[in-house]
Design a protein around this nucleic acid. Structure first.
Length: 596
RNA sequence: GGCUCCUUAGCUCAACUGAAUAGAGCAUCUGACUACGGAUCAGAAGGUUGCAGGUUUGAAUCCUGCAGGAGUCACCA
């Protein structure tokens, strides 16, 4: 790649001219802003002090030396402290010739024996269906996995299902009490939604009981603790832990419903896992570690029997690791599963896709792992993402302002259908193909809308805008892809163009060059995005590429071009753009249609 | 209250981690259809980057203070 050649030559030039030693990687090459002539820019300010010359003089001297070293650098110009290099057309030409039929352009393959990166995401509770917040989690988890894979890593996707605890007991209890034996089959309600319904039911009756107790003169705290439903739920949890058959059977049944529902939603979203863990099977793992910590003297036991880790030296508080009754907490089992995962995969990194409300938890997790003597503690990476807010504020399940994942997807498919019918271009498709297309478009819109914003930031989900198909949206990119595929089809089928042989262009026009430069950037964009776990960078890249292409396409009649060589070159360029779009969209988990 | 994160155009988001005149989309306005796919393209308008200092040749970006917002500080997960 030309950037690397530039870095190397500049590094040498600095040494030769001024005796400055700077490693090639340390030299920053930027792409030249559109208003200025040139392709790549070196800012020379950092070196003028040592060179003891004016910025212009330094830039000119470096430019002159580099031009002499690199045949691909056709020219350079200097504006103040900015040294702009122009790359020769022949370099861009050969770049297209070498890559025009590379389906996997931009994508790296991992060595088979490389230590994997384990990415945990999704990790739902089993008491209610998935909502918008989970959607961001799932899309991010999937996409980051794809991104890491595309940058040459082995990736294992795992899910830790939180299938035990007081929450599922609440659903179970409410179902027993108020359910009248309802099943998904008898009601026609989607499995996980039925379980969620009883979770809400529990909350409703529980609140009534609390209110009544308070009316009888109890204070709020006591009322909450003594409400019969809560007492029963606690008892049920105890029975579950004791292995009570009746409770376990019901638990198995209702969790089974939830899994069936989740599987459907996962399938809709197009995400999957290499391995699924269940908390019911792993929740005891951490206890051994705690004992080890006690033996090592890095943990301590209080008089009441509870076990703690003192993190005050690290600027944090004391953290509870075992309850007074010896049962484990969230942190305890996370310690256990981290160790399990590390041992099981020999992982290079353990990535957790979890919301930023748990920043503190993961900080503590890393510290405690370190105190327990695990040198791999710093391999734990919390991919912390911001919450999703709605125009009218936050999502609150109690207030019924959650956006349900299934409902949202169905809604978007409906909109996609309406939009498509309006444009009426898909009459040639069979009803099945149409339905598939609407699904592809709906999910393209949804995924792109969520993934294009920086994961770390709180984002606003505006339903009205998310189903927009114009501008910086998934469907815009899908549409661009479909058009390009159409051009290529016509070139091959109607015009009998032979695309198998590499050809050079006659002359590159400005917009064509923009497209080629954009393509040329893809590998480094993927590398950089992977480094910062940012699918958003990929999304924005893909959008820019499409915009560049559309702009070029608008005033360059590719198929009407009379010069066969030029035409062939441009159609091959189309192929490259199509491949780049497909590969980047694949990283985001977005499908691209051949026609739409 | 302590700690962490955020604040960029009317709205939703960028800005390659310190560089040239802070960029897109939506919304508004103006142009381009004998359409290689107009779900497009070209253009206009829209900014004291929350406020005040500081560091630097250079700051949306780094430091300090202030204001506003979010999260978290459970023997919940």
């Amino acid at each position: 790649m030309i950037q690397q050649s530039l870095q190397k030559s500049i590094s040498e030039a600095l040494q030769e001219l001024y005796g400055i030693s700077a490693s090639p990687e340390a030299i920053k090459i930027e792409s030249t802003k559109k208003e200025f002539e040139g392709d790549y820019t070196l800012v020379v300010f950092p070196y003028v002090k040592q060179a003891r010359k004016s910025p212009e003089a330094v830039a000119n001297e470096i430019g002159n030396v580099v031009k002499g070293k690199l045949a691909d650098i056709q020219n350079y110009n200097v504006i103040k402290g900015f040294l702009n290099f122009s790359v020769s057309d022949s370099y861009w030409d050969s770049f297209v010739m070498q890559n025009h039929d590379a389906d996997t352009f931009g994508i790296q393959k991992a060595a088979a024996d490389a230590a994997p990166i384990v990415v945990e995401y999704s990790s739902p509770n089993t008491n209610k269906p998935l909502h918008l917040g989970h959607i961001r989690n799932n899309l991010l988890g999937w996409s980051v996995s794809q991104l890491l894979a595309a940058s040459g890593h082995n990736v294992k996707k795992v899910n830790l299902v939180n299938d035990r605890g007081i929450h599922i007991c609440k659903s179970m209890l409410a179902w027993l009490r108020y359910g009248n034996g309802e099943t998904p089959e008898s009601t026609g309600i989607k499995c996980d939604h039925l379980v969620g319904k009883y979770y809400v039911e529990f909350d409703k009756h529980y609140k009534e009981q609390v209110a009544q107790l308070m009316a009888e003169g109890k204070d709020e705290e006591t009322a909450k603790r003594e409400a019969p439903l809560m007492v029963e739920a606690q008892a049920m949890l105890k029975r579950w832990e004791d292995g009570d058959k009746e409770v376990r059977d019901l638990w198995t049944k209702m969790n089974g419903w939830v899994y069936a529902g989740f599987d459907e939603t996962y399938k809709q979203m197009g995400v999957s896992f290499d391995k699924v863990y269940y908390e019911s099977q792993t929740y005891l793992l951490g206890k051994e570690l705690v004992q080890k910590g006690l033996d090592m003297g890095v943990l301590f036991r209080k008089e009441d029997g509870s076990v703690w880790c003192d993190l005050t030296a690290d600027g944090l508080d004391q953290k509870l690791l075992l309850r007074r009754d010896g049962t484990s907490v969230y942190m305890t089992q996370d310690l256990g599963t981290a160790l399990l995962r590390h041992n099981e995969f020999g992982a290079e990194r353990l990535v957790y896709v979890v919301g930023n409300e748990q920043d503190y938890h993961f900080k503590v997790l890393k510290l405690v792992l370190g105190k327990l003597g695990f040198d791999w503690a710093d391999k734990v990476y919390h991919l912390s993402y911001g919450m999703v807010e709605l125009p009218n504020g936050k999502m609150k399940s109690r207030e019924g302002t959650v956006v349900d994942a299934d409902d949202l997807i169905a809604e978007m498919e409906k909109t996609a259908e309406e939009m498509s019918r309006e444009h009426g271009k898909n009459d040639s498709l069979t009803p099945e193909q149409q339905k598939e297309l609407y699904h592809i478009l709906a999910l393209g819109a949804l995924k792109y809308f969520i993934l294009k914003v920086d994961p770390t930031k709180t984002m606003l989900f505006n339903p009205a805008e998310s189903i927009d198909f114009n501008g910086n949206t998934g469907p815009f990119i899908q549409y661009t892809y479909a058009r390009i595929r159409s051009i290529i089809r016509k070139a091959v089928e109607e015009q009998r163009l032979d695309l198998s042989q590499p050809v050079a262009s006659e002359a590159l026009n400005g917009k064509e060059k923009e497209v080629i430069k954009s393509l040329h950037d893809l590998p480094s964009v993927i590398a950089q995005a992977a480094e910062s776990y940012s699918p958003a960078m990929i999304a924005n890249y893909a959008y820019d590429l499409c915009k560049n292409f559309n702009s070029f396409y608008q005033d360059t009649p590719i198929l009407r071009e009379e010069n066969v060589q030029s035409k062939c070159f441009r159609v091959q360029l189309c192929q490259m753009v199509a491949n780049a779009i497909r590969n980047t969209m694949d990283i985001l988990g977005i499908q691209v249609p051949e026609r739409m």
